[in-house]
Design a protein around this nucleic acid. Sequence first.
DNA 1: ATATTACGAGACGAATAGTTCCGAAACTGA
DNA 2: TCAGTTTCGGAACTATTCGTCTCGTAATAT
Lengths: 191, 191
Amino acid sequence: MVGRPRDARVDQAILAATREVLAEQGYSRLTVDAVAAAAGVGKAAIYRRYASKHELVFAAAVHGVDLEPPPDGGSLTADLTALVWEILDSLSTPTARAAAPGLISDFLSDPALADRFEETFLARERACVGAALDRAVARGEIEAPPERDLAHSLILGPVFAWLYIFRRQERESFARDLVVRVEAALRHTPS
Amino acid sequence: MVGRPRDARVDQAILAATREVLAEQGYSRLTVDAVAAAAGVGKAAIYRRYASKHELVFAAAVHGVDLEPPPDGGSLTADLTALVWEILDSLSTPTARAAAPGLISDFLSDPALADRFEETFLARERACVGAALDRAVARGEIEAPPERDLAHSLILGPVFAWLYIFRRQERESFARDLVVRVEAALRHTPS
DNA sequence: ATATTACGAGACGAATAGTTCCGAAACTGA
DNA sequence: TCAGTTTCGGAACTATTCGTCTCGTAATAT
């Protein structure tokens, strides 16, 4: 590679500024000029790295999240509690909270972005769900496990709904109740 | 009221054109000029009725939906099946599917719009959930019913997740499995 | 040393939201 | 009948923002 190398501090400044503007203004009011100004960077430096505003927001909101598979908690209850809290927390950061619905909306018009979301984030989250499910089956806590995506949607869906639509019940009690109800749903053996 | 009255055919043409453009282009690519052209109407006629593009889309996507409380199906299983299908269908129309994530994103920056969504649509959906829950309690099928919003989120959340994020499992089998699992979740009595 | 790329700054064109004006039409009330 | 008011389609207009491009300068490879 010839020429002047990219400055890693510019990389970080752009991502940090994007998260900052995202948290302060929300996705719909985020402008690339504002991000460039907040980062102390020219717009060209941004478009040299990301093809569009969508890509920039995607990178800032999704790339930073490292979803660790929770360790074996010893019981389905413990594993589910950890899983619910991990998903709830990862969607509750100001950045993720501001970006998620806009990104999901973008997926409808940009399937390639949706695919990358699938690979980058969703696959790891699904692995966490699958691991918890497998352990519960191995322990004998679950006889007839559901489809993984269904189990995943039974956790992610209500968390999303609580975050963006309902938001009445208090956070802790919502998480506690959700764990109890999802556990019952997963344990159920169709007759 | 003095002056020329508004033409009801213009009202309908605007809403129909909005739904049409929404289905064809998606929310993010919908332009007010395109709606006006498709409706054979001037832009002023649109802005005379709606304060912003958001309001227009909100009216076109949410106002048309009439959510009938499903009748007593005789059992929790039957009521839940009807409820899941009603929610799934109402979100599956091309209009609703294209508009929903964008509208949810708008709610973050426009709480007034979120409030009107709550009053216009969510309240009725919650009433349907509540009715089914009450009947199940009366029948003795449920001992300890969950918070209504939690029950609501246990249905709406997974449906939303399936529609916009997962979409792998086939529609009918997803609905069938979801009913079974949600029923188990609702029937569960915490010990 | 020269070629190449990155840098901040900012000008630029295209697209779009929302406003305003036009002349014509429709309705109310006197 | 007629003056006043509002709507109509159409189009011009402003302001904002995305994304591109050009400038002069700095950093690196060969």
